[in-house]
């Protein structure tokens, strides 16, 4: 599904990713962990198509096609979803209008009939229940005045509406209390299927109790320095990152 080969990325002349290799197959969940500043969010942003990052070499194939030459909206419509670490507040853009446009852009792209307002509202209610979103929130502007937890739930709610093939969750767990964390995890697990995959970027093992990964990768100084099964997360939780730092001191 996703194949990252020897990816180097810079921002404003500073090299952040230094040769990433990662292979995500359909149905797999990959966790990416690592200390602050190791390049986790950069990787997530580059995959989603954020423009200020410069890919200096390497390639990324998404379902066999060159992902990096596509616009962010094309990537989205082909089934890639980024759950933002910091969802943006957009005053004046009503949630409902935004979501309906997004869903219908996806449908158009797939050659499906656009949803009417009524059909969309029905779909929206269904998905809202799934992530336990308060109905009032959809009457507001996008993320405006949402609490930290509501913003993160809103990301998962959008993911549920758009049903992506590959979801990238960029520290979706940060700032969540345990109930919200479970809700978010339930949302992700509800979408799990043999065709769908996810990359879960997180600092903490906690989220991985609920979203059980197939692989855990440790990203450090722009490289994946260790890959193992879910037990690696537990090991990190216990030992911290220092041993990784020592191992990779040179």
């Amino acid at each position: 599904m996703l194949s990252i080969k020897d990816l180097y990325v810079s921002i404003e002349g500073m090299e952040i990713l230094k040769g990433i290799n990662l292979e995500v197959k359909p149905g797999e969940i990959h966790a990416i962990m690592g200390p602050n500043g190791s390049g986790k969010s950069t990787l997530a942003s580059v995959l989603a198509g954020k423009e200020e990052y410069e890919v200096t070499s390497g390639e990324v194939l998404f379902e066999g096609e060159n992902l990096l030459e596509k616009a962010p909206e094309e990537r989205a419509k082909e089934g890639l979803f980024l759950s933002f670490q910091y969802p943006v507040e957009i005053p004046g853009v009503p949630m409902v209008n935004f979501l309906k446009s997004a869903v219908n852009e996806h449908r158009k792209y797939k050659g499906e009939k656009e949803l009417t307002a009524g059909e969309f509202l029905k779909l929206m209610r269904e998905k809202m229940d799934m992530v336990d979103m308060h109905p009032n929130l959809t009457n507001r502007s996008v993320n405006e005045g949402f609490s930290g937890g509501e913003k993160k739930k809103n990301e998962i709610f959008q993911m549920a509406l758009l049903e992506p093939k590959l979801a990238i969750l960029d520290e979706t767990d940060s700032g969540l209390d345990i109930d919200a964390l479970k809700t978010v995890a339930n949302g992700v697990n509800a979408l799990r299927s043999p065709e769908r995959s996810a990359i879960v970027v997180t600092h903490y093992q906690r989220l991985l109790d609920y979203i059980v990964p197939d692989y855990v990768h440790i990203l450090y100084k722009g490289k994946i320095v260790k890959t193992a099964g879910k037990e690696l997360a537990l090991e990190l939780e216990e030992k911290g990152y220092d041993w990784i730092k020592t191992e990779n001191a040179n």
């Binding site: 933002f84 943006v88 997004a102 996008v142 758009l162």
Partner: peptide
């Protein structure tokens, strides 16, 4: 706001449409 623009585009709205939405907002 470029951040907002990217957010809208990351949900599948093309750039022109995203800009229009931002201006209307």
């Amino acid at each position: 706001d470029e951040e907002a623009l990217f957010y809208l585009r990351a949900r599948g709205l093309d750039e022109g449409k995203a800009r229009l939405i931002m201006m209307n907002a």
